[in-house]
Amino acid sequence: MSDSWLQIHGLHLRRGSRQLCRDLELELCAGDMLAILGENGAGKSSLLLTLAGLLPATQGTISLGGQILGTLSRRRIARQLGMLLQDHVDMFPMTVWDAALLGRYAHLAVWQAPGPADRQVTRAALEQLDLLALAHRDVTTLSGGERRRLGLATLLVQDPRIYLLDEPTNHLDLRHQMQCLRLLSTLARERQRAVVFATHDLNLAVQFSNKVLMLYSDGQHRLGDSTALLTEHHLSSLFRHPIHGVPTAQGLVFYPGT
């Protein structure tokens, strides 16, 4: 298939003595919005890092655009796949603009300076995340939510086909949470991108995902369509806590029982 960006076959993940997932079969296609749900430590971040090639798979293969992930250079991976890490700490001062522009790194040759097109992409990304006014601010002075949005903007500047996001709405206020996921879903729908996001917000998963991967703490997993998996029954068993759904005009809204 020409618009299948990422294929995973028989993936086993193990960290220390803990089995995080077994025999995962997954294909990511253009337009997919896959939500990863699971308890703390169930392996959401590890899975994302493995898909990005930053952690080795215990067993199984991951192919990116038809090629085995491990055989590709970081530069070639970065042109196809980008990831927003869970946390980011800045050690050195740098302006917001410069940090976002570094998203072009994989697209520029060593001796090549960023051109007008690169600057245009950067400007657009900062604008989309309400950061243009902060372009000259030093990154070490940003608030947690602002830094998070800068991470997203950098990812937009990098412009990969596959977006991996580890809890993208962390630190974001409500408006920016919605803005961020609307942006990603537009990218998936209109520009044939594939988006994978780990989240603890069930209602964002309901609103924005078309597929769900549930990682259980015992190493089992469940993969399927959002409409089939995002139910009181499945969610309550996943989080080992009663979860109730209320039908609203925007679909089901989940809240935890006490």
Binding site: R74, R79, L85, V89, M91, L102, Q158
Partner: peptide
Amino acid sequence: NVLALGDQQGALLGLPV
């Protein structure tokens, strides 16, 4: 400049860290 962002972030942006 990319490496200054950290090893993981650098690798994700395409740097052979």
